[in-house]
Simulated assay, not measured.
Amino acid sequence: MFVPTKCFFTKGVGIHKDKLASFELALRQAGIEKYNLVYVSSIFPPNCQLVSREEGLQHLSPGSIVYVVMARNETNEPSRLVSAAIGHAMPKESNTYGYLSEHHAFGETAEVSGEYAEDLAATMLATTLGIEFDPDRAWQEREQTYKASGRIISTTHTCQSAEGVMDGRWTTVISAAVFL
Rank of each mutant, 00 (worst) to 15 (best):
M1C: 09
V3T: 06
K6F: 02
C7Y: 06
F9W: 14
T10D: 10
K11Y: 09
G14S: 11
K17P: 00
S22D: 07
S22A: 12
F23S: 05
E24Y: 15
L25W: 04
A26H: 08
Q29R: 10
E33M: 07
Y35H: 09
L37S: 04
V38N: 15
V38K: 14
V40Y: 04
S41E: 12
P46S: 15
N47D: 09
C48P: 01
Q49C: 02
S52G: 10
S52W: 07
R53F: 08
E54P: 00
L57Q: 13
S61D: 14
G63M: 10
S64H: 09
V66I: 09
Y67K: 14
V68Y: 10
V68D: 08
M70W: 00
E74A: 10
E74T: 07
T75E: 03
T75F: 05
S79E: 14
S79N: 13
R80K: 15
A84P: 03
G87H: 07
M90G: 02
P91H: 04
K92A: 05
K92P: 00
K92Q: 08
E93C: 04
N95H: 13
G98Q: 06
G98Y: 02
Y99W: 12
Y99F: 11
L100M: 11
L100H: 02
E102F: 03
E102I: 07
E102A: 07
A105S: 11
F106M: 14
F106G: 08
T109W: 10
S113R: 02
S113Q: 03
S113Y: 03
S113M: 06
G114E: 15
G114K: 13
E118T: 05
T123H: 02
M124N: 13
T127Q: 09
T127M: 07
T127Y: 08
L129F: 13
G130T: 06
F133R: 07
P135V: 02
D136P: 00
R137P: 00
W139E: 00
R142G: 03
Q144F: 04
K147A: 02
A148E: 14
S149Q: 03
G150K: 00
R151H: 05
I152V: 08
T156P: 01
H157W: 13
T158H: 13
T158Y: 12
T158Q: 12
Q160Y: 04
S161D: 15
E163T: 05
G164M: 08
G164T: 04
G164N: 06
V165Y: 06
M166E: 14
M166C: 06
D167G: 03
D167M: 03
G168T: 02
R169E: 14
W170R: 00
T171V: 11
T172H: 06
I174M: 14
I174A: 07
V178Y: 06
L180I: 05
L180T: 05
L180N: 09
